[in-house]
């Protein structure tokens, strides 16, 4: 099994507050890794370190190693623009741009300028197909993205990420703003996506982690308490705190 990302001794600070403490974790290629834990445990902070989105928040600092294709993501010399193209992110609330559906898919493609203009129609179709949105929107590609339902908007956000040809997709509670039907559609979609991509998903729902992921990491108070195969963790947790959490004894 190939390890796509290797995290070693990761610490993260908001000002003087340490939000992550000495995290060590291996992210496996073409697998879904779920991050669970009560709110404020550091799971969202963790995925923000992987594509350096924390750069956008003032007064933050990370140290340690996140090894990805021979470089340390946390290095000052890492090209964050290139990095974020390779490691896509889907947010908690759907955040399509106020543009048409096709413009949303092409948004980053056009600005990266690394794909041929004559391929644009096929990029649109392929990305939307992979995000299982094509059949629902193929007749209205020029309509505003805001005309879509919440679940469709979220799949559009996945499609626009796929259009940049990433290796890894980070998802920060992508279904927390969606209804159960839209949620199950995204969950089905994830099983398709992992054939081509490595997925890391933050989720507030243990059931979701159990349903969809191959590996699960349990965070508590900025520490990684337990990490392992999902099946094992939910059937035989090694740590008492993990057990307490998955049996519902934390909030």
């Amino acid at each position: 099994m190939t390890i796509k990302i290797k995290v070693e001794n990761l610490n993260f600070y908001y000002g003087s507050f340490q939000a992550l403490q000495n995290i060590n974790i291996d992210i496996h290629e073409n697998r879904i890794t779920a991050l669970i834990g009560p709110s404020g445990c550091g799971k969202s902070t963790f995925i923000k370190t992987i594509d350096r989105m924390y750069d956008l928040i003032e007064d933050t600092k990370a140290d340690g190693t996140i090894a990805f294709e021979g470089i340390n993501i946390l290095d000052e010399s890492t090209d964050v623009v290139e990095l974020r193209k390779r490691i896509g992110m889907v947010f908690q609330k759907p955040n399509p741009f106020p543009k048409s559906i096709s413009e949303n898919v092409l948004y980053a493609v056009k600005r990266h300028g690394d794909q041929d203009k004559k391929d644009f129609p096929s990029i649109i179709e392929n990305s939307l197909r992979k995000a299982s949105l094509w059949d629902e929107v193929k007749h209205k590609l020029n309509q505003s993205a805001f005309s879509l339902s919440g679940g469709q908007q979220q799949r559009l956000c996945i499609a626009r990420t796929l259009a940049t040809k990433p290796d890894i997709i980070l998802m920060d509670e992508p279904t927390s703003a969606l209804d159960p039907i839209a949620t199950s559609k995204i969950e089905e979609l994830l099983q398709e996506l992992k054939k081509e991509y490595t997925v890391i998903i933050v989720t507030h729902s243990m059931q979701q982690a159990a349903r969809i992921s191959d590996y699960t990491a349990f965070f508590l108070n900025g520490e990684l308490i337990e990490f392992g195969e999902t099946k094992e963790m939910f059937t035989a947790p090694r740590d008492k705190r993990t057990e307490d959490y998955i049996t519902g004894r934390y909030g």
């Binding site: 990095l83 741009f97 948004y107 980053a108």
Partner: peptide, 25 residues
């Protein structure tokens, strides 16, 4: 909304292209 700006940055779009692409419009 900062969510939309973050959406653009997360796709690996540079600052100026994010400005001309979503912020100014």
């Amino acid at each position: 909304p900062s969510s939309i700006i973050d959406g653009s940055y997360a796709l690996g779009v540079t600052r100026w292209k994010t400005i001309t692409g979503v912020i100014l419009p």
